[in-house]
Amino acid sequence: MILIWLALAAAVCVPIAAAAASPLLAWRDPVYILACFSGIVALGLMLVQPLLIAGYLPGLAAYRGRRTHLWTGGALVVAVVIHVGGLWITSPPDMIDALLFSSPTPFSPWGVIAMWAIFSVALFAALRRRLGVRPRTWRIGHTLLAIVIVVGSVVHGILIEGTMETISKAVLCALVLAATIKVMTDLKVWRRRAKLREESIARQ
Score class of each variant (00 low, 15 high):
residue 47 L to R: 02
residue 67 R to F: 09
residue 153 S to L: 08
residue 121 V to W: 01
residue 177 L to W: 06
residue 104 P to L: 10
residue 31 V to H: 00
residue 16 I to N: 02
residue 151 V to N: 11
residue 59 G to T: 09
residue 60 L to A: 07
residue 40 I to E: 03
residue 170 A to I: 11
residue 162 G to V: 03
residue 133 V to Y: 05
residue 171 V to T: 10
residue 190 W to Y: 10
residue 92 P to I: 10
residue 152 G to K: 04
residue 127 L to T: 15
residue 19 A to V: 07
residue 145 L to F: 09
residue 50 P to M: 12
residue 121 V to M: 08
residue 18 A to T: 11
residue 37 F to Q: 05
residue 156 H to Y: 11
residue 181 I to V: 13
residue 27 W to R: 15
residue 5 W to R: 15
residue 152 G to Y: 00
residue 68 T to N: 04
residue 112 V to F: 03
residue 92 P to V: 10
residue 142 H to I: 05
residue 154 V to P: 01
residue 2 I to Y: 01
residue 187 L to E: 15
residue 161 E to I: 09
residue 128 R to S: 13
residue 53 I to P: 04
residue 17 A to Y: 09
residue 8 L to Q: 05
residue 102 S to F: 05
residue 126 A to M: 09
residue 126 A to K: 07
residue 176 V to S: 07
residue 124 F to Q: 14
residue 7 A to P: 06
residue 108 S to N: 11
residue 186 D to R: 10
residue 196 L to W: 10
residue 108 S to W: 06
residue 151 V to L: 13
residue 98 A to L: 04
residue 168 S to Q: 10
residue 120 S to Y: 03
residue 155 V to Q: 12
residue 81 V to F: 06
residue 176 V to W: 00
residue 111 G to C: 08
residue 13 C to T: 13
residue 9 A to C: 07
residue 145 L to Y: 07
residue 80 V to P: 00
residue 204 Q to V: 04
residue 153 S to R: 01
